[in-house]
């Protein structure tokens, strides 16, 4: 198992926000955490990213315990958080620069990926000069530049309009194949969860617990019409049932 957490509980003011969460991610896997707002998804993510220490439980990467250690997995938020005063290229190389790499080599390293991320020709633009979809892709590229084995994406596509979102889904599935990424992502979009994931963990209740883990069987890459197939609808129903909807 590439990445896992076991029995994680995190409390605030003595009240558990998330309780007894265990999940795992294999090499090249795509796993989603689905649940209503306020169920503690982001709290859990902060623990997984090592930004927060759980009251109970452990986090493992490649069998090594990394509980409370930041910088071991990449983390991306719903907001693209591109720094307005840095060009797209200089935003993307930020993880490398922070690690102490020379700016010029870092830029050369990042430039290679601009085509793939649909950002070619926009290297020297500032974030406010490019579209929402491009900003999100730039943020993803920056996340990939951290070059850690696991990506944690907190609602990566939720700020985008519906059509851009669909385009991003298709694109992301491609990128995952090409770059051999392993991803855990948070979403509250049921369609998105079924479309992208190998396993959907459903978080529900107060405190948030894993109500169910649903495997989406068809292996990736999936058929072009998967999202309009009968199997898709069955999975969707199953998830809605688990959410009590």
């Amino acid at each position: 198992m590439l990445f896992a957490c076991e029995n994680v509980t995190r409390c605030y003011d003595g009240m558990p926000v998330v309780q007894d969460i265990s999940l795992s991610l294999g090499q090249g896997g795509l796993v989603s955490l689905l649940g209503p707002s306020g169920v503690g998804k982001t709290t859990l993510f902060n623990v997984l990213a090592g930004l927060d220490v759980p009251d109970e439980g452990r986090v493992y990467l490649n069998g090594e315990e990394i509980t409370g250690k930041a910088g071991r997995v990449s983390y991306m938020l719903q907001k693209d958080l591109l720094l307005p005063y840095r060009t797209v290229l200089d935003n993307v190389i930020l993880p490398l620069v922070i690690r102490g790499e020379d700016k010029k080599t870092a830029r050369d390293k990042a430039r290679v990926h601009f085509e793939q991320f649909g950002l070619a020709g926009y290297e020297d633009k500032y974030p406010h000069q490019i579209s929402g979809g491009m900003r999100q892709r730039a943020a993803l590229l920056r996340t990939c530049m951290m070059d850690t084995p696991v990506l944690l994406l907190d609602e990566p596509f939720s700020a985008l309009d519906a059509i851009t979102k669909l385009q991003m889904h298709a694109w992301y599935l491609d990128i995952v194949e090409q770059l051999h990424l392993s991803t855990i992502f948070i979403t509250h979009d049921v369609d998105e969860a079924v479309l992208l994931s190998d396993t959907v963990y459903i978080l529900n209740g107060r405190p948030g617990r894993i109500a169910e883990a649903i495997d989406i069987e068809p292996p990736r890459p999936r058929a072009h019409d998967f999202s309009t197939s009968k199997a898709f609808a069955v999975y969707k129903r199953g998830i809605l049932d688990a959410l009590g909807l």
Binding site: A49, L51, V73, M76, L77, R86
Partner: peptide, 21 residues
Amino acid sequence: RLLKTMGASRLQVYRYIKLPS
């Protein structure tokens, strides 16, 4: 927070976030 996940030091937080903004 994002910068910290990249392993940024306090000084780097000033250099890349606080001072420019």
